[in-house]
Amino acid sequence: MEFSVNSVSAIADARNYFPLFFHFDRMLNEGEFSGKVAFDWELQPVTFIDANANGFTCSVTVNTHYSKEKEEAEAAWLEAIGVLEYFLGSIPREHNDLIFGQ
């Protein structure tokens, strides 16, 4: 899953993604998430042509642990994607220089 902060100024500094990673990790640990998956976060350079903005996006790859059954791996992956979607959807809007939804 790839996402960006919805702010021209915020995407310019890769450090703005660390709090998201940190709070997601805390949410998993405090919520006792026990899914057998690994979340791999990676920053990537980006250009949003329509917004005339350069900066970074974040890609989160979800890898399941080994499972004997395909259905078990799919269930673990879907649960992990659901948790990630919930977290990203809960981030409040903090900027007015939007890339999307202007």
Results as ranks from 00 to 15, higher is better:
K70F: 07
Q44S: 08
N29Y: 08
V83P: 06
T64F: 01
L84H: 05
V83I: 07
V60I: 08
F39G: 04
D40H: 06
L78F: 09
I81E: 14
E30I: 01
E94N: 11
L78Y: 02
V5R: 00
A38V: 13
Q102R: 15
S7I: 09
L88A: 12
S9W: 11
D97W: 08
W41C: 05
E69K: 10
N29P: 03
S67C: 10
V46R: 12
F87C: 03
S7G: 11
E72Q: 12
S7P: 10
A53H: 05
A51I: 14
N63M: 02
L84K: 02
A80S: 11
N29L: 08
A10Q: 11
G35L: 01
H65C: 09
I81N: 13
S59N: 12
A12F: 03
F48T: 01
N52I: 03
A73E: 06
T57C: 08
D25E: 10
M1Y: 01
S4N: 05
A14M: 07
L78C: 09
Y66M: 05
M27D: 15
K36R: 15
K68F: 06
D97T: 09
E94A: 14
K68P: 11
R15S: 15
F21V: 14
R93T: 13
K68H: 11
L98P: 06
T47H: 12
